[in-house]
Design a protein around this nucleic acid. Sequence first.
RNA 1: GCCCGGGUGGUGGAAUUGGUAGACACACAAGACUUAAAAUCUUGCGCUGGUAACAGCGUGCCGGUUCAAGUCCGGCCCCGGGCACCA
Length: 865
Amino acid sequence: MSMQNEYNPKDIESRVQAAWEEQDAFKVSEDDGKEKFYCLEMFPYPSGKLHMGHVRNYTIGDVISRYQRMLGKNVLHPMGWDAFGLPAENAAIKNKTAPAPWTDANIENMRGQLKRLGFSYDWSRELATCKPEYYQWEQWFFTKLYERGLVYKKESEVNWDPVDQTVLANEQVIDGRGWRSGALVEKKKIPQWFIKITAYAEELLASLDELDGWPESVKTMQRNWIGKSVGAEVEFEVEGEPALRVFTTRPDTIYGVTYLAVAADHPLAIKAAESNSDIATFRKECAQTSTAEADLETMEKKGIDLGIKAIHPLTGEPVSIWCANFVLMSYGTGAVMAVPAHDERDYEFANKYGINIQPVIYPEEGHIDISENAYTDYGLLKNSGQFDGLGSEEAKKAITAWLVEHGRGEEKINYRLRDWGVSRQRYWGCPIPFIYDAQGNASPATEFPVELPTDVVMDGVGSPIKKMSSFIDTIHPETGEPAIRETDTFDTFFESSWYYARYCCPNLDTAMLDERADYWLPVDQYIGGIEHAVMHLLYARFFHKLMRDVGLIDSDEPFTRLLTQGMVTKETFYREGEGGSKEYFNPADVDLSLDDKGNVISAILKSDGSPVVVGAIEKMSKSKNNGVDPQSMIDKFGADTVRLFTMFAAPPEQSLEWNDDAIAGGSRFLKRVWNVFAKHQDLLAREGLDTRKKFSAVSKEAKSFRLTLHTILQRALFDYERQQFNTVVAATMELTNAIEKTDFKAMGEEGGKVLAEAACVLIKLLSPITPHLSEHLWSLYGSSDSLTSSGWLSVDHDALVRDEITYVVQVNGKLRAKIEVAADAIKEAIEAAALADENVQKFLDGVTVRKIIVVPNKLVNIVAN
RNA sequence: GCCCGGGUGGUGGAAUUGGUAGACACACAAGACUUAAAAUCUUGCGCUGGUAACAGCGUGCCGGUUCAAGUCCGGCCCCGGGCACCA
């Protein structure tokens, strides 16, 4: 067999992919004779085309999957579609179509792109969350949770567009206005379904400690999100009203309370507004913000005195009650106590409105200065009655004990975590399986799926099923009376919270999961964007525990090891329309002019020749339209080059600003690999490729080459294990450089063997990254075993033994010389050799040597002055 | 505002975790081949000085610990992600 002269990726890739398809190469089933490995990447939203973020995510997953297969494991590697969501509705409105066919077409297209990239998925397990075969089980599961008392309904705030008469997502609120109407958005309360994630707060927090395979940063973010704090709930009596209860982590500061603050929709504020138009106006103003926490936290802190007094539980003094825009009714009790002397936000607020500031905590030494800032540290109590002189820690306990004893409070653990609101007033989602009788009483559906009608017309205002009597009208299963269906749909995080489990038994039509789930779960390696560090990953962990408690699975956590891939970012380009709305343009449609340092001077839209604004460098996303389409690069260079370059450009966890200039270098490298094999085809055909054959080199040249080979291999294996693939690629480049520079024929008999060993290492190291090229070369020269079953690589430690070692010599920490020392030299001999060096001597002239530090196999540092 | 990351040549990045800063590439420059271009190959490439050997400086900024700091500690600045209805 002879090799073609030119590397032709298109030809190789289509042939190798056809062979995989024909052999069902990646289809797996349960096999107790092999160690299982479940590798999963976060499934994509089918937006239409793959972007570079997808390519990066799925290449990382594929490299890990193929690496694990090479190690001999039974690898499950599935793919599917997170198919419900807002963009489908917007596209449907824009294109005058329905979300379902738009989504199906996108899936079709993106599946083709994934196949073209040669990802090793078991496609027989593919699922799409918008199909009733999938979502019927989460409907069923939701009713199970309802039976267990984990589901309830309550009023909750949404962003309301008063012009379009519709609920807006936070993303659709731009500078406080609706994105389509431009109307000022209002907060509106509507009844919505919730799941009690707070009932699992303690377990979700505690089991983070056991997730050794998760990045510390993600665990910290989740801990902070759950936000456990220990403190006290304190009761302030209000004349003629129910007492106000507030939570505080600082009961030691209670003598410093100079006001209380309640939310704008707290009953006290609502009542006060009835007789005071200023308060009514203030409440209205508070309603005109978005529900996003970032907006609430950054807006100007405002308040108004309600003119009502509470009684301080310890001093008996009256304390004024304010209504403030930063207090949330939905968080805690909707009321807080304020200690301006010892809390930054309270301090600012008190200064603004001239409220008394009463210091009660003092440092043990020195004095406090609260003329500029609050004093927020712990200290000793003063002006605190019987508690004067206690330290903060003791005082917390003593004051809480006093409150308990006098029936004015209790010790309390508070979580920042709030229950999960799962209702959405949108069409393209899974219908929430509830019905209502004539009196409005809710009861769970008894038959599944509650199917979402897909033949709809989107008018841009509200969900079409909310007006569709064929969907809404039904019969109550118990009474036989007419009833109506819930028309809200689930939050799309609902679908993505359990898909990883469904891949274990995707076509099961008699249950949500079966025993196969316990064979495969937990997922051994999960890979996805760092932007999902909290919400998606927390909901999935929660769901896993719910499924366990319903008896569907027996593990506690869904993902053993987590790799949070850095974002692929890109410049954004936009034009501002009327009312502040922005129209974003894709980087591919913009011409840039750069200065000689590579900075952008101006950006022109190709289609009309007029300038666009250069925005921030941000995560590639649909909404910012800054995704780079990888298809043109696949067409031009082939899948292996795109995969190789994506891995080479940066380590997986680091964010990557996309720049497609450098990809040609990746293509050039694979051509060089091809040429190495073509050049030596006769030798390789004779020797074959098998690293399991043991041999040791005799000639100096062969020994030296094998030292290089195994040094590189050792680093590459280490980097595979720690999942730093960019340096794996660098190692294969170094190896290729070394092979090119070596004259194997000059080594005589040994040459062919040494070359074959190196070629085999090269093919195998590359195989998870550029599987098509590796498979093809293996088919030409490899053994009769398939590449995947031919075994992984190991370092020959005998090849790493050196006679001489290079030491770096420093004088006072500065590099002055390099010396060659026999590998078995004793410390004194190394020191002597270092001191004898001419350049070292130059720097020791006129000074005294105080100390010599020898780091074995590395360096000598001579300390002198 | 709060929580979590990041900042190293013209560019992407490396530094086996306190021990030679800049591996491996991209870009650029010079040369070879070619009528020419592309492709390919060779060489150079942190900054300053020097023909060179070499020397001084250098990992966002300021300070500290250490024989030795990109790496550890303290204080800042800038950039990115998330903040519960984008996914």
